[in-house]
Each structure stands twice: as structure tokens, then as C-alpha cells.
Simulated scan of single mutants.
Amino acid sequence: MKITSIHTVPVRTPMREPLVWPGGTRLSASGLLVEVHTDEGIVGIGEAPGPTLPTIRTIIDAELTQFLLGQDPLRTEWLVHRMEEFTRNWSRIGAYAISGIEIALLDLKGKALGVPVAELLGGFCRREVPVVGYLFIDEPEANARKAAAFVDAGYSELKLKVGRDFGQDHDTIAAIRDEVGSGVKIRIDANMIWSVPAAIKWIRGLEKFDLQYVEQPVPDFDVAGMATVRRAVGVPIAADEGCTDIRSALELIKADACDVFVVYPSEAGGLTRGREIAALAAAAGKWCAIGSWAELGAATMANAHLVAGSSNFPFASDTHYPLQELDVLTESLEMSNGFISVTDAPGLGVDVDRDAVERLANIQVRESVFYDDIQGEAPRVGQIV
């Protein structure tokens, strides 16, 4: 079997409501759909979410396709290695493109061998993958109602964006706790917004709410500062923006800077590299959770296969999927009782709706994940507040 062509299509869906976080307001979710075609008619489906789809698409179409055409698609590790070597000098952005291709290659291999992707990643450790109820910055009462709706739907873990105002964060978490009780886990994510002293002050002020963990309280480049925060507070600390690939995971381990790795297969360069980060974490006594770039259905299911095939993802996975209006799949993913089911269907077990792809490729909606309030003062990371 040989690869005959690579097709890419950027798609976008509106969010059900504006999602406010420390760095801006998100109005849409977008991803680059990647298809790997072969001379035997088997097509692998992948998705590359990321910060700049035009650049990621150009990398695939103009740079990486040369390493794929005419090659055996089952040689996944070899093909990924060739692409990683080619993008070594610009590996951070190259990883997003490689991830979309690698997911498509694994989907293709699973279809060719008649096994699900989770089997290719080590075999099933679980069939049901838990996901978080995702909450953004809003009035305390509004977030308490949303939290209750997630819990009523079967979710047992919640994630809340924080960092703009301590009083609002405090009151929001208090309102959520009053609404859902002590049995529901709550994690918070500051998205690098605090300085080290600010992080210590704010986290200590919120410890009484029994937080599951705090994500990336300080800037991603300040590994030593993250370690300082971790030693100073009584809440587990997670590395999010600071945990992008295997090398950054090693630096976090060396500094003993966190308790949890938030793993993004899109940033790591694919599901295989994501699994390797999880293995490093396990060896160092750290645990993992999946992070979200607001993936559409294909990448959301790919992430679920990674969790299903690993023993080191004890926390619910991040996902924006329930907050998105549309998708490109023939059947939307079901998150019953706060879980995604991973079946024995070959590959990812999803199919693409061509009409939906065409619609979502032509949707016009603002896409500005970072610093959306371009008329006002842009947020800064590492603030002393």
C-alpha cells in the first residue's frame, strides 16, 4: 500500500456562547481536517487544531507532503521521525502539522489492520473516557447554574477559567461548591496570568474549596517559578502551556515543578508522542490529563483513544466539544454521563460528512483566541496583582 495524496481543509464552528478566559474571548472552534489517501482506497482521517491554521496548512501542503507521497503509510514511526527531523529548527509549529498527519496515519493503519487506534497505542486500559464540564469566566450565579447542569448530566469533574479578578473567582468557586457539593472535583486554570507571588497569594486564598489542581499559574517559561509555587501551596499544580513536548516534560521533571502534566497531542506532535509524555510522567510519579485546543470531532476522538490506551490519565479530559454548535462528523460524539465511549471500530471509528465539511469550511465567524479585546488593554502574563 502506498500514499497517493494528502488533502487538507480548514473548518470552523461557532461556539454556543462567547467563552471568556484570562487571555481573551473565544467565539469559534477551528481545525484543519487532514486526509491521507492510498492506492488501495483506504483513507485516514486526522485533524490538526492549533494557533494558526493557514500556517499549519502550508506546512503540510508545501513542506511535509514530500515525505509522504509514495510511502508505506503503515510505517508510522519512520514517517513521523522524518517529518520531525525536517522541522527541527521550527519544531513548535511543525508539531501541530505532524500531529494532524500522524492521527490520519494511525486511523488509516487501524482501518487496514481492522483494529481501533487504542490498540495501536498499547491496548485498552478503559473503554469509557471521562471528560470535564468546562466553565469560563462569568458571574458566580451563572457559573453555578452551568455547573449544576453538568453534574445533572453525569459529569463528576469541572474545570473553571480564573485569573481576572480574585473576588469574582472566589465567589464563583464558592457558588459552585454550594450548588454541586463536595463530591464533585473542581480544577482551575489561570493560563499563566499570575506572577509567582500573585499565584501563591491567590491559590492560598482558594485552597479552602478543595481544588483538584491549579493549571499553569505562572508563565510557561518560568519553570523555577512554577516549582516555587508548588512548594508554597497545598494544592497540586499542573503544567499546561509549560508542557508542550517530551523535552519540556523532562525539564518539568528535573525541576520537580508540577504534579500533573496537561498533555496536548497537537502540541506534542501526535498521539504517539503524547503517550510517551504520559510514560515519562508515570516514571517520575506524575499524572496526566488531556488538554483542549477546542478540537472538533476527529481530534476529540483521537484524544479519547490516547487516554483509552494509557494507564496514566486518571483525570477527566478537557474538551470544548459540548460547547460547539457544529461538527464535520456523520454522527456527533456522544458524551453520555460525562464519558466518551471508545469502541472496537477500526481506526478512530468516525466518518466525515462531506456536506458538513463544505459548510464549516465556509463559515465566517471571528477567530481570535488570544487578546480578543483589541480596543482595550491586552492582558499580560505574569501579572503582579
Rank of each mutant, 00 (worst) to 15 (best):
E207D: 02
V131R: 00
V131A: 09
G382L: 08
E295P: 08
L280T: 07
E128K: 12
V131K: 02
A345R: 04
A174S: 02
K109A: 14
G50T: 13
P54E: 08
F166A: 06
C258G: 13
A278I: 10
A104E: 13
G122V: 07
A255F: 11
P18S: 12
Q216F: 01
D107C: 15
T87P: 00
G50N: 09
V11F: 03
R231Y: 03
I340S: 11
A104I: 06
G122A: 07
E334C: 00
Q383A: 12
V115D: 03
R247T: 06
L280A: 00
A302T: 12
S310E: 14
A298E: 11
D220P: 01
L323P: 06
T244R: 06
E251R: 07
Y134Q: 10
V369C: 13
V184I: 07
G269F: 05
L135E: 04
G338T: 02
I384T: 01
R145A: 15
L280S: 03
A190S: 04
V162K: 07
T65V: 15
A268N: 12
P140N: 03
T343E: 09
T58A: 10
I59C: 02
I42V: 15
K2M: 05
V260C: 04
E334P: 00
H320K: 05
R354F: 00
E63N: 02
A268F: 09
K185W: 04
N337L: 01
A282C: 01
L108R: 11
S332D: 01
D245W: 02
A97K: 03
G382D: 12
E35Q: 14
D189I: 04
V196T: 12
S5W: 09
K159G: 01
W78Y: 07
V385Q: 01
M192C: 02
L121G: 14
S336C: 10
P10W: 05
E241A: 13
A345V: 00
F124H: 03
P73E: 03
P314M: 04
P140F: 02
N337I: 04
F136Y: 15
A147N: 11
K146M: 14
E215K: 11
F370P: 01
T4F: 07
G376F: 09
N312H: 06
W90C: 11
A104R: 05
A356L: 03
A144D: 05
E331M: 00
D259L: 06
H7M: 10
H305S: 06
D222W: 11
A149G: 13
I6H: 09
G382H: 11
D372I: 00
E102N: 08
N191R: 04
T55R: 07
L105N: 08
P379N: 08
R26W: 09
A95D: 13
M1T: 04
V365Q: 12
A278K: 05
H170C: 02
V229I: 13
R75D: 06
L333W: 00
A227T: 03
S30P: 14
I237A: 07
F136P: 10
V365A: 15
P22Q: 11
V235R: 05
F150L: 13
A232H: 12
L68Q: 09
A232L: 04
S310M: 05
D240I: 14
A148H: 14
V229R: 14
A97W: 12
I253K: 00
N191S: 10
F86G: 09
V328A: 10
L252M: 13
Y264P: 00
I103H: 14
F339W: 11
R164C: 04
R145F: 13
R164N: 13
P54L: 08
R273H: 04
